[in-house]
Design a protein around this nucleic acid. Sequence first.
DNA 1: TACAACTTTGTAATGATTACAATAACAATA
DNA 2: TATTGTTATTGTAATCATTACAAAGTTGTA
Lengths: 139, 139
Amino acid sequence: MNIIETLQQRDIKPSYLRLKILEYMLARKNHPTVDMVYEELSKEIPTLSRTTVYNTFNLFLQKGLVQKLGIDDVEAHYDADISLHGHFRCDHCGKIWDLPVKTDVSQIEGLKKFEVRTIEYYAKGLCDQCQKCQRHSNK
Amino acid sequence: MNIIETLQQRDIKPSYLRLKILEYMLARKNHPTVDMVYEELSKEIPTLSRTTVYNTFNLFLQKGLVQKLGIDDVEAHYDADISLHGHFRCDHCGKIWDLPVKTDVSQIEGLKKFEVRTIEYYAKGLCDQCQKCQRHSNK
DNA sequence: TACAACTTTGTAATGATTACAATAACAATA
DNA sequence: TATTGTTATTGTAATCATTACAAAGTTGTA
């Protein structure tokens, strides 16, 4: 399915900027912040406004096209992969990885009485690259 | 173990305010924000500063006495129960519940190469009380 | 073309958190 | 007890991600 159809399927009019923003996410398969998208796309689209990126992410979120990750205390990250999976974030370099977490909601005793809409699973620590750095710098 | 010992065990000098803040958390077993603690304790301690609550939570966090919950987009919540468990937050009333999640880290394939320091598990949706409210208000 | 609806933009406001410097409380020592 | 250094607390100002809002631009339609 192409990008326009992906937007339309979620009832989002495929404007040029929405296309570019979704394209950015699908091509990179990363977990960008508003600023990452803004910095990258404004190279090509100098008139782009940060507010538009905020607005677009909020629209995507509301339409269920992306999920918002609260793994970072400072900035929100967004993920175009809305399947149930977890994330690892390195405390040192800030990079985020996907984790294949298979959590069967029905297994979790305490959740029975709730109407669950979203599930987030985060692990934090050091990636293997930064483990080496840390050892050298004795931090 | 009493509150003073709990602080000392984590290498924290048991000042009066630290005692009161930890006492608040252990007595209520809730997941307070800085403001919740500030509002409650300043009734009894009118000179209390919000900054002190921030400082104290950061100290407790650094010493491993509490964990910080990123379940809320707006404010950080803190939990004096540092055992591995998850949380459910109601999107409507904002209340937070504990979830008995037993996640064996070694089971998660993708985590092997990382040095994991913290694990957070969040579910969000509607609590049973608010499910009823929502039905009535047709939201 | 004219109109209405929607999209994009820039600036200003909001609000949680931190930085910082001043003051207060505490502890140890002579 | 007086002194001195260290730590704790406080209040204000700064930071910074995000949102509010209103103006300007764009699109589709009759």
